[in-house]
Design a protein around this nucleic acid. Structure first.
Length: 330
DNA sequence: AACCCGTGGAT
DNA sequence: TATCCAAGGGT
């Protein structure tokens, strides 16, 4: 594209954004870098609707500042993240807040304004660093996430480009006079018009210059993924109407409370049902067994109301639900 | 570079 | 119901 064509496209984008942009997103209406940073992390691989309706406001109410976040116990942060998934994000958020508190030496902690400093912080990759720089600090840099990626693939007929290539296109197109509006507009166009399936090219401000408008769904090529099934036996240790839960230590669902799997359930257990849960890379099928103990054999036992205070993953929530359903039918 | 890491919206 | 995939990052 020539410079003239790029300028024309930027003008179209700007005009479209003024009329159709999503102007009610709270992280667009604040200047607080911490709020913008939090939204960017929450929105990683997560839809706007989920963050907006269930997580953004409660989290900020509980942790209004970087200082409040870093000073809080990690388990409280995880509890506010419960159900949002990719829990490493919560851990890295907490770690980053603590790092910045340390660097502030008693003053109020602040986020760095430069991309090369932002990207050193855990949980901030190239895109999030660019997003914070553009949205919180008005720097003339592009973002390059799922929406922008799809638009670029269609504009320039890219089937499976690498990120380096995509960043080159993104830098060429960004409106350096209006990086905030430009980037927000690109994400809105991707989220509302340039959809993965059945994009509405007739409504798109970039239709004239788009090379992929004839067969947009061919760009980019979608990769199929197969989801292997894993079977597990879950043995509930029950003592005095309380359940034994442990805090996970591995990479998967790290630090969340839940039930451990066993090779073989002990004798004197009762099969109370099955629970399935589909993750991105595998499907879990759990056979759940109840084991009633006459004296405590595990470390921690929790009543139902005590469990509600712990951060628990969705599959363990399903197991608890099955257990409650079982005992209510007795 | 390929794989791991969660959950739910949308169709 | 099954499938895709979302404001990605870490390893």
């Amino acid at each position: 594209m020539t410079d003239r064509e790029i300028s024309a496209a930027q003008l179209k984008i700007k005009e479209w954004y003024a009329r159709y942009g999503r102007d009610n997103l709270p992280w667009r209406m604040t200047d607080d870098p911490y709020h913008i940073y939090l939204s960017e992390v929450m929105l990683q691989q997560t839809q706007v609707k989920t963050v907006l309706e269930r997580y953004y406001f409660p989290f900020l109410k509980k942790f209004p500042t970087l200082k409040a976040l870093g000073d809080a116990p990690l388990d409280e942060v995880l509890k506010m993240w419960e159900g949002l998934g990719y829990y490493n994000r919560a851990r890295n958020l907490h770690k980053t807040a603590q790092t910045l508190i340390g660097q502030a030496q008693g003053a109020a902690p602040t986020l760095p304004t430069e991309i090369d400093e932002l990207i050193k912080l855990p949980g901030i990759g190239k895109n999030t660093a660019h997003a914070v720089a553009a949205f919180a600090f008005k720097q003339p840099v592009p973002v390059m996430e799922a929406n922008v990626k799809r638009i670029l693939c269609r504009l320039f007929l890219l089937k499976s480009p690498n990120d380096k290539h995509l960043w080159e296109y993104a830098y060429r197109l960004v409106d350096k006079n209006n990086p905030f509006d430009y980037n927000q507009a690109m994400m809105d166009i991707g989220a509302t018009i340039c959809l993965p399936k059945k994009p509405e090219c007739g409504e798109c401000p970039l239709e004239e210059i788009c090379n992929g408008k004839k067969d947009p769904e061919h760009y980019p090529v979608k990769k199929s993924r197969k989801v292997p099934v894993r079977e597990q036996n879950i043995q509930l240790h029950i003592y005095d109407d309380k359940l034994s839960l442990t805090q996970r230590t591995g990479k998967f669902l790290h630090r969340l409370w839940g039930f451990e799997s066993v090779e073989m359930p002990q004798c004197a257990t009762r099969h109370i049902g099955m629970v399935t849960h589909t993750y991105t890379h595998f499907k879990l099928v759990c056979n759940v067994f109840a084991y009633y103990e006459t004296e405590p054999e595990q470390e921690h036992y929790f009543s139902v109301s005590e469990i509600k205070k712990l951060a628990i993953s969705k599959v363990d929530e399903k197991i608890i639900k099955l257990y409650l359903h079982t005992i209510s039918g007795e």
